[in-house]
């Protein structure tokens, strides 16, 4: 564990050095993040001109939800996206060769080697939005709320990671699919709104097959004091199961690695 922490720190450092090579991007990215969150807020405002409830969630509730969406998106773009998008490349171009010859867990390496720091802006903006939503609702979360919120947020991150990892692992067989990440993005976009907003078959799929329901709705509900321990622990359990599955799948897939020729 300590060893992996040290390797992670090393990744962190090299990525920081890498990004310093392209400092000027920072300002542009800050601008685009602020712009992105502005547009999202505007969309919600438009919804709420027509109605004062969205799938049972009030305006302030949806703000909190959107804040969580943004926070998660920040984390995803900070650590997950830069790595997941590269997995297909590693497999297609054979650079996985070097990773596999290193005495380090290959799944750990491909998952955390690349970090994009400026994306943490989204995390801070997201937290800001959560606070704003809570103020709007005049609700101060209890310490229990916050604890459950943190647990369910961790569960969400694990779940997102596992689902994406499994999706990318299929690249061992369908090498030519250039950007499987897009498939994931579309899925993640569905969590921008409360799960109860979706109807019929789509809702069933998003709840039970691809557990989008947990991802943003559960942490948001927790922070608003609408949680129960069973649901929280279930989401943590589900996340754990998915993590285990993704790991098994990765190990299994490695046996099919054919390594691009030199």
């Amino acid at each position: 564990m300590k060893r992996y922490w040290r390797i992670f720190r090393e990744f962190f450092r090299t990525c920081l050095v890498e990004e310093m090579e392209y400092r000027s991007e920072f300002i542009g990215n800050l601008f685009s993040s602020v712009f992105g969150i502005g547009i999202a807020l505007l969309t919600i405002q438009i919804f709420f001109y027509q109605t004062d409830q969205l799938g049972g969630w009030s305006y302030a509730d949806v703000l909190v939800l959107l804040g969580i969406f943004n926070t998660l998106q920040g984390f995803i773009h900070f650590a997950l996206r830069p790595n997941m998008a590269r997995i297909t490349q590693h497999i297609r171009k054979g650079t996985l060769d070097y990773i596999l010859t290193k005495p380090v867990d290959s799944m750990f390496y491909v998952s955390f080697r690349h970090l994009v720091f400026w994306r943490l802006i989204d995390v801070f903006l997201g937290i800001g939005l959560i606070v704003y939503g809570l103020m709007e609702k005049n609700y101060v979360p209890t310490s229990g709320d916050v604890l459950v919120f943190i647990i369910s947020l961790i569960a969400s991150l694990l779940l997102i990671y596992s689902l994406w990892m499994m999706l990318m692992t299929t690249a061992f067989w369908v090498i030519r699919i250039e950007d499987l990440s897009f498939a994931f993005d579309s899925f993640f976009e569905t969590t921008r709104f409360p799960i109860s907003m979706y109807r019929g078959g789509l809702r069933v799929v998003l709840t039970y097959i691809l557990p989008a329901a947990f991802i943003t709705s559960a942490p948001a509900a927790a922070l608003l004091g609408k949680w129960n321990m069973i649901t929280t622990l279930t989401s943590l359990l589900v996340a754990g199961i998915f993590l285990w599955l993704s790991r098994k799948f990765w190990k299994f897939a490695l046996r099919f690695y054919t390594s691009a020729s030199s």
Binding site: R9, E10, T14, V17, E18, Y22, T95, Y98, K102
Partner: peptide, 20 residues
């Protein structure tokens, strides 16, 4: 195929390998 990190000096790759 290269294992060096493209945008930064080779020394950084050496340090990553040191940790690994």
């Amino acid at each position: 195929k290269s294992q060096l990190i493209w945008d930064i000096p080779p020394m950084e790759t050496f340090l990553v390998n040191k940790a690994i």
